[in-house]
Design a protein around this nucleic acid. Sequence first.
DNA 1: CCTACCGATCGGTAGG
DNA 2: CCTACCGATCGGTAGG
Lengths: 199, 199
Amino acid sequence: MVETTRRREIEDVASELFREHGYSGTSVRDIARALDIQGASLYAHVASKQDVLWSIVDRTASQFEAAADAALADLGDAEPMARLRALALAHVGVVVEDIGRASVFIHEWRSLSPERRARTLTRRDAYEQRFRDVIREGIVAGTFAPIDPTVAAAYLLTALNGLVAWYQPDGRLGPSSVTDAYVELSIRAVSGAAADEAS
Amino acid sequence: MVETTRRREIEDVASELFREHGYSGTSVRDIARALDIQGASLYAHVASKQDVLWSIVDRTASQFEAAADAALADLGDAEPMARLRALALAHVGVVVEDIGRASVFIHEWRSLSPERRARTLTRRDAYEQRFRDVIREGIVAGTFAPIDPTVAAAYLLTALNGLVAWYQPDGRLGPSSVTDAYVELSIRAVSGAAADEAS
DNA sequence: CCTACCGATCGGTAGG
DNA sequence: CCTACCGATCGGTAGG
């Protein structure tokens, strides 16, 4: 199963390059150079550059979905706040665990072929729907502030995704402290009464 | 002053294309085509493709700075919450006002030449410092939850910047309702005691 | 995984 | 703002 390993190596290297320079800004030869092989040799392992992007995006989408599934499976019918907390924690966990792939999934979907882009956006919408649903339930329950669940979910997810813009795995802040802070900020953002409605 | 107008047109068109396809994914001929001129004709108005990106980024950076200055000028020594609210409102205002340029400023700085990228990151850090400062003051004053100001500022700014990922000027939601919701979510995210420390 | 190579497109220049 | 053109690089193929 050497091919699978090599394929993963290619995707690892490509993720980092796509993250840093974008899909368009990364050439097939850039990827090959990072692997110490010739540009054309890459085609012994992949069908196309687009194929590499698709593998990264598709696999990472599955990771986000699986993490959300696992997070909610434990909770069942727990309170909305506990479930939103679990969703946020699962999301940040995937981001922190593989920031290169997460970054590509989040930012490079525009470079997918039209059909794949459409499929990916549909999956992302379904994923985001989980956030919208739990936020809506929390509002009904009175736990969360009365705010448009679509706006709130978009806000939270882009905030959590923003981690890829600055987080460094070997930086000053450890993964758990950043994760905790991000979850805490997110929960508080939607909690309680509106901050400017003190009356 | 025809040149200035034409120059602006070029930057307007380029902003939209850079936003949609990235700097690397947009060719000089793409920009020219959108203006109904030949690719080479663009060089009668600009020195290089990089030059266009730089103009957009530089001008937009100034807009964010000016908006923050104006927002704080009115307030002087008001409470941290009022000042953070003003900063957030100013920031979202610039984003909503010209989402194309804002998106390029936020995402395409990686494509700047090394020197310009460094200068831009320095400016961004100074801008973000205003958020860190007011958050820190709010924590000291007891208005905001005790959280790392650097993490909180990064969270808030990426959340606000996330608007460019989904907001459509002619969409279902008007600019003021989205702006208000974003400011409200941001203020609440940092306000009060930690959500999970009820004791 | 390599060498040799392909047509297409890239950013940019010359000269008007 | 145009035509004509440049060298470099692009993603990808052929054949081993």
